[in-house]
Simulated scan of single mutants.
Amino acid sequence: MAADADGGLPAPPLDEQGLPEVVDHVAVARLYGEPLFSLPTDLYIPPDALEVFLEAFQGPLDLLLYLIRKQNFNILDIPLADLTRQYLAYVDQIRKRNLELASEYLLMAAMLIEIKSRMLLPPKPSEDGQEPEDPRAELVRRLIEYEQMKLAAAGLDQLPLLGRDFMRVQVHSDPSLVVRHPDVTLADLREAWMDILKRARLHTHHTITREELSVREHMGIVLRTLQGQRFVEFADLFDVTRGTQVLVVTFIALLELGKEGLLDITQAEAFAPIYVRLAYRPA
């Protein structure tokens, strides 16, 4: 296969329909589904289609500070000749691409040239006899203030930022899903007590005896009964076989323990059985 007239790569052979035949079954691209085996000769790529910026500066002071720190210049004794030369070289590069962006950099370049010119001229004697101020003093002050603000901004940027480094946790609670048990009232205790009395009458004997009962003793019996138990039903704390007197003393003992905060009396819902447990006391 012969090369073309320009000395470039040979053109692929054409088939009967005038379309290029597949060479090694490799196409450089596809256009509307059709394979392209060589780049078009009239393909135009703008010169600024791809630009790479190795350094990004926020303004003229940022560029000056970069040049000073890069070459380890003493900021209090800036060699303006070398600095101005490098600065103008950078301005000339950005002026070719963006004249509007280069305008503020040109203003700083004019200030550098003015300062250098003032340094070349003999200083004017001051009226009070003191030494004249260094023409670079104002520029040095601005550079130092700018560097301090830049370091402070970098420090702030390192702090954790909401939405970038962490997210705020949001917890939604539906009050309708919270199960709240009804409180046990005196009326509920009275009804439970009346139920105990009704059950006690089923075991009533006609034996008349005299028995001295101690409320404190029955308080201890109740506490021992509840020891090691999570919940005990209210009715299970009463011994209905020992008569009404024992039931009354046991009930008074329960009331005294509840008054002293040693018992918790709970109910899962209205009209549900009443349960008793030892009160929880944190260590």
Rank of each mutant, 00 (worst) to 15 (best):
R230P: 10
T207R: 15
Q245R: 09
F231H: 11
P175Y: 04
V169R: 00
L257V: 03
M219H: 02
T225R: 14
V215T: 12
K259D: 13
A253V: 06
Q267Y: 00
H205T: 15
W193P: 00
F166A: 13
V215C: 07
R224D: 14
L197P: 02
L156H: 13
Q267A: 03
Q267R: 15
Q227L: 10
R180V: 12
A268I: 12
G243K: 04
R164S: 11
M167F: 08
T209D: 10
E233Q: 11
E212Q: 10
G228Y: 05
S173N: 06
F234Y: 15
R164N: 09
T225Y: 04
S214A: 08
T250Q: 02
S214F: 05
P182D: 02
Q229M: 12
E233D: 12
S173Y: 05
V222A: 09
K198C: 15
P160R: 03
M219E: 15
T207S: 11
S173W: 02
R210I: 12
H172Q: 06
A192P: 02
I208E: 13
A200P: 01
I208P: 08
D183I: 04
A192W: 00
R164T: 10
D195S: 14
E260R: 06
E233L: 10
M167K: 06
M219I: 02
V249Q: 06
I252C: 07
R242N: 06
L189P: 00
L263Q: 04
L237M: 04
H205G: 11
M167V: 11
G261W: 04
K259R: 14
L202R: 11
V222S: 01
R242Q: 15
L162E: 13
F251W: 11
F166W: 09
R242C: 08
L247E: 11
L255M: 13
L226N: 06
H218V: 04
L161D: 15
L162T: 07
R164W: 09
I265C: 03
W193D: 14
W193A: 06
T207P: 02
H205D: 08
T207E: 13
L223I: 05
L197W: 05
V246E: 12
D264C: 01
G243W: 08
D195E: 14
R168Q: 12
L263C: 09
L159I: 06
L213D: 05
V179W: 07
H172K: 08
L159H: 07
K198W: 14
M219F: 02
P160H: 04
D188S: 02
K259S: 09
R201T: 15
Q170T: 07
A270E: 11
E191S: 13
E233N: 10
L186E: 09
A253G: 07
E269N: 06
K259H: 12
Q229L: 10
I208M: 14
R224Q: 14
Q229W: 01
